[in-house]
């Protein structure tokens, strides 16, 4: 009886050890956003365990640096950030407390996903009188699916640095990701091609990469300046603009309330379309591919 118990206990111990050994073999990756998490999962497959700090329906400029994230960062092999000061308000206090030199800026595990991304709206002069501007350029670059390839390459490089033995595995996944995104990007652009040049209004200046990729024309914003809530005079200006130029679409993000957009749409005879800014914005969007499937189909339905 005693022997049986001991055997059972040891088997249990063995199971725990074996399961923890398979966990050990996985690289621990922390990303700031779910889009980076999705791409990392596609490149790293089952060899990575990826945690995203922000949710897909959260404003990435304003994430609370909760101490619980420090625990994740303290054990991370790789940390992936959007960069360009998008997360300036919350990444620094987390990294400063993480006690993990691998993922500090300059460390082998630190990945600025924006490296080599062709940036848009890089200001030649910067002043906070212009609102929440980003001095390195507009940071919402993941909303162009082809920038996903640059992001994937940056993540691939970091995974190889952390785990060089699996280079061929990561490389195969990278090639597969690039092929898929190329094919899908062709489908998405074809679908929206009939509406190329269509003028639209956006709530916040976060769509220039999406706009450029799909040939849309964002002519104004509900925010008078980036980060400044809509004012009556700005909304009045936009209503007149929509009436004058026959603009029918206002796009907003999941983390902005729709009241001001609804009011403008009612007065200007347009409609409000909520587009997803990140993976996980709603239950349908589980991967980086789903993000564009969803946004393109939402826009297509609204425009036709």
């Amino acid at each position: 009886m005693m022997n049986k118990r001991v055997t059972l206990l040891l088997l249990l111990l063995l199971f725990c050890l074996l399961s923890s050994s398979s966990t050990l073999a996985q690289l621990k990756v922390v990303t700031t956003m779910t889009d980076l998490q999705s791409i990392t999962s596609m490149i790293g497959g089952d060899k990575v365990d990826v945690f995203a700090i922000a949710t897909g329906f959260q404003n990435p400029h304003f994430v609370d640096p909760k101490p619980s994230y420090i625990m994740k960062l303290s054990r991370a092999d790789v940390f992936v950030t959007v960069g360009l000061d998008l997360e300036i308000g919350w990444v620094l206090p987390l990294l400063n407390s993480a006690r993990n030199s691998k993922i500090q800026k300059g460390g082998d595990g630190y990945v600025d996903a924006s490296i080599n991304v062709p940036l848009l709206q890089v200001p030649t002069s910067a002043s906070r009188a212009q609102g929440d501007i980003h001095i390195y350029g507009n940071p919402h670059y993941w909303l162009d699916p082809l920038n996903g390839k640059v992001i994937a390459r940056n993540i691939f490089d970091a995974l190889v640095r952390a785990d060089p033995d699996r280079r061929s595995f990561y490389e195969a996944n990278l090639m597969k990701f690039n092929e898929t995104i190329d094919a899908k990007a062709r489908e998405w652009t074809e679908k929206l091609r009939p509406y190329s040049g269509t003028k639209i209004i956006a709530y916040h200046n976060e769509w220039p990469y999406f706009e450029q990729r799909f040939g849309l024309q964002i002519v104004d914003f509900l925010e008078p300046k980036p980060g400044i809530p809509p004012t009556p005079s700005q909304l009045f200006k936009v209503i007149n603009e929509m009436k004058r130029d026959h603009i029918k679409i206002i796009i907003i993000s999941p983390y902005f309330t729709a009241e001001s957009a609804d009011m403008v749409a009612r007065n200007a005879g347009g409609k409000v379309v909520t587009l997803a800014t990140s993976v996980g914005a709603n239950e349908q969007i589980k991967t980086y591919y789903d993000l564009f499937d969803y946004n393109v189909s939402q826009l297509f339905e609204a425009l036709r």
Partner: peptide
């Protein structure tokens, strides 16, 4: 190396 159908990245001077 995987090709990227984008313009060359702008140099960063900041």
């Amino acid at each position: 190396t995987p090709t990227i159908q984008q313009a060359q990245a702008a140099p960063r001077s900041t």
